[in-house]
Design a binder for these strands. Structure first.
Length: 274
DNA sequence: CAACAGGCGGGAC
DNA sequence: GTCCCGCCTGTT
């Protein structure tokens, strides 16, 4: 176990800000056990984060965090995953003091960070997420992960070999064919997610949208959550409503463009929790 | 019962 | 290019 002091991070806000589907609270009994052991208050929030083949339990006490892992794995995996080398207080300062809605959103979601999740997992997750609700998305992803035997998202090879009717039975509905075809395309080399990393946001988005099942919104989500392109701005039904209510003259991308994705998260979370 | 949910594809125009 | 409709499925 190692302890770290981290600014601008709240586990629950980050877990429930819509960017991640597998960061869930640790079971109550286990959470109490950990909290007591590390002398945190026994009702401290504890979450399990997962990426690739790594997972960790984390408990929070204010700005103090206990990671149930080694210093070396923290440096190797979790520093990057939680985007700890980005100064979110600087991003918050971009907010126009007259922009009261954004100000209120930042106040509510002060501890949201954009996680650097596994790119393939993000692609799979957000294809499933379209026109779908969170409990069902989570259930589908869990069923997929249960197939591999080590609780990880099936890689493209594995996924491409899962029969479509099995995907369908996991609650994917009409998204079953999309996911299957995307995995097949990766195996055939006609879609190379790794190449997106060296592209501009515009090019990466265009490339993603060539895949059937990846449209405008899902492509933007993959750019933000899988490629950490913070200038992307996913517009879903919530954000569309927010824009029409609070930004009738359009969202000021000229001011906020570089970190639009972070501000989007604050506003999305604000809307989701009201 | 209809409407909706972290939308998208395909066809009409 | 924009508009519109159908779509898996569980929940309200």
């Amino acid at each position: 176990m190692i302890k770290k002091t981290i600014p601008d991070l709240d586990l629950a806000q980050t877990a429930y800000s819509g960017q991640v589907f597998r960061m869930l609270p640790v079971e109550e009994e286990r959470a109490r056990e950990i909290s007591t052991k590390i002398s945190f208050p026994e009702d401290s929030p504890c979450f399990r984060a997962v990426t690739g083949c790594h997972q960790v339990e984390i408990c929070q006490n204010g700005h103090e965090f206990a990671f149930m892992t080694s210093e070396s794995e923290f440096e190797l995996v979790w520093r990057d995953y939680f985007d700890l080398d980005t100064d979110y207080s600087e991003i918050k300062k971009l907010c126009d003091p007259a922009d009261t809605y954004l100000l209120a959103s930042i106040k509510k979601g002060w501890g949201i960070r954009i996680l650097k999740q596994d790119l393939w997992e993000v692609i799979v997750s957000f294809v499933i997420s379209q026109n779908n609700n969170i409990p069902r998305i989570r259930a589908s992803i869990e069923k997929l992960c249960s197939l591999t035997g080590n609780d990880t998202i099936p890689d493209p090879e594995f996924l491409s070999q899962i029969p479509v009717n099995v995907l369908h039975s996991f609650g994917l509905g009409y998204r079953d064919e999309y996911l299957h075809k995307i995995a097949v395309n990766v195996m055939e080399g006609t879609f190379m997610p790794g190449r997106l990393r060296s592209m501009s946001y515009e090019d990466a988005k265009k490339e993603l949208m060539k895949q059937t099942g990846i449209g405008n919104k899902v492509a933007d989500c993959i750019c933000v959550f899988g490629l950490h392109m913070l200038n992307a701005f996913p517009i879903d039904t919530h954000v569309k409503k927010i824009l029409s209510e609070h930004y009738k003259d359009g969202f000021p991308f000229d001011k906020y463009g570089k970190y639009a994705a972070v501000l989007q998260q604050y506003m999305f979370y604000n809307d989701l929790t009201k």
